[in-house]
Each structure stands twice: as C-alpha cells, then as structure tokens.
C-alpha cells in the first residue's frame, strides 16, 4: 500500500507513531466497536481513560464531571462492562474518552447498531460537550442526518477524497448531499 502525507496534531508530528502516542498528545479516540475492556468493570474502564494523565489524580477530579452527564454510571460502577447494553457501552466508551480531558475527541461510527433514541441521546451529549466545554469533536458517521444536525462543519468523503466540505447547514441544503445521503 502506498502512503504519503503526514499527520500532525497541535504542532506535533504523529505520522508513523503508534496510537498510544496519539493518546498521550491529547487525542481521545472512541473506535468503531467501542474498544471497551469487556472483562473490567465500568469504574475500571473509566480509570483506564484517566491512565494517560496520571490515573489516580485524574479520575478523582474527572469522575464527578462524567457522572453528571451519565448519572447511571455511578450507581453501576462495579458492573462488568461487557454486560452493559449496546447504548450503555457506547456511553461508557464516550465517558472513558472524556475522563482523559482530551483536546480532540474522535468518534468512529457512534450510532452503529444502536436504537434511534439512544443515538439521539449520544449526539445530544456530544453537542453539549462542545457547547459547554468547548471540546473539539471529530465524528465519522454514516447516519448523515444525525451527524449534520450536530456538527458545525462537515465533509463528504468519496473513495478517500474529500468530495464536498463546508458548513453543515449549507451541506444540508446541497442537492447532491440531500439526494445521496439524506434521502429526500
């Protein structure tokens, strides 16, 4: 496979570095499939989120904030993550990413396999995070309706190239986007 170009974040080169280095430079990535530690408890998963910033100090400071967004987690902190429902797992993955106080949050297909109400809930929280805490969020999402509604800027990728990009309100009016992705 031919590769070219470079990846830089906040002025630091990340090309060729492993995902652990990206995490240490302040990027929190919630992968497709969530990447939870199914055998560990909810609380231990959150602790792992704090790992990158010094676990003990960070978890003590960040846990209350995360529990504000997801109150159920505090009650069920000893439950095994693998036994949560799909929506709860997605929320835990999100919460775990938040614990690290990232400079950039990347969500890969957060709606995958979830009920529409759960998807709404997740995107509501993401929007809130962006509005309240000024958190930068990058979402890759097939569900264009939901994504365009939440995002301020949007890009359409076609075979690895940015086909259309711009303000998401404008993109929603774009005829091609409407026909191919929004379905009306």
């Amino acid at each position: 496979m031919r590769q070219s170009g470079e990846i830089a974040f906040a002025g630091k080169q990340l090309s060729g570095a492993g995902p652990d280095k990206a995490a240490r430079s302040g990027i929190a990535h919630v992968p497709e499939g969530r990447g939870l530690f199914a055998e560990l408890s909810v609380w231990e998963n959150l602790r792992m989120g704090a790992y990158v910033r010094g676990e003990r100090r960070t978890i003590r400071r960040e846990a209350p904030r995360v529990f504000e967004y997801f109150p159920w987690m505090e009650r069920r902190r000893d439950q095994q993550a693998g036994t949560l429902s799909g929506g709860e797992q997605q929320m835990l993955a999100l919460a775990r990413a938040l614990v690290s106080r990232p400079r950039l949050l990347m969500l890969d297909e957060p709606s995958l396999g979830l009920a529409p109400t759960v998807v709404q809930e997740i995107f509501r929280i993401v929007k809130e995070l962006n509005a309240n805490d000024g958190l930068t969020v990058l979402v890759v999402e097939q569900n264009a309706n939901v994504a365009l509604e939440a995002a301020s800027r949007a890009y359409v990728l076609e075979v690895g190239q940015v086909a259309i990009g711009g303000d998401s309100a404008e993109l929603r009016k774009h005829e091609g986007v409407r026909k191919s992705y929004l379905g009306y």
């Binding site: 652990d20 995490a23 929190a28 990535h29 990447g35 530690f37 199914a38 775990r96 690290s100």
Partner: peptide, 13 residues
C-alpha cells in the same frame, strides 16, 4: 484483555 484498546488509552503495551 484488549491490547488495541489499551493503546488507545495511551498505554505502552
């Protein structure tokens, strides 16, 4: 349990 996810957490696996 999950080396890939650990890497995402910034762990030097």
């Amino acid at each position: 349990f999950n080396p890939d996810a650990s890497r995402l957490m910034g762990v030097r696996v």
